[in-house]
Amino acid sequence: MLLETAVSFFLLVGAFFTLVGAIGLARLPDFYMRLHGPTKATTLGVGGTLTASMIYFTAVEGTSLHELLITLFLFVTAPVSANLLARAALRLKLRSRAPLPEASGAGRD
């Protein structure tokens, strides 16, 4: 019973943050702001779902920790792709509500 509650809790938290990330992607006004939604919320969202899976399968089938691999992988890769995308956007000089920095080394390599 307690276990079921924990699994349900993590599932709902995970689904909520996944949805929030996607909503951010869909409705924020410029690219740099849209970048925030998926990189943070979606990563934690999937993390929540994976935690639920970990608890559930540990209870049903005995230790199940391999979900940890996906979680860690996502946490390591999310900043990298966000960073590269931001760099690409700066290179293309996408319009932004925050004033773009002048003398940055954007895209210069």
Partner: peptide
Amino acid sequence: LPDRILALDTLYISAVA
């Protein structure tokens, strides 16, 4: 283009979930 790439990125992470 970056918007579309970001959307793809979100799409696959959600697919994992």
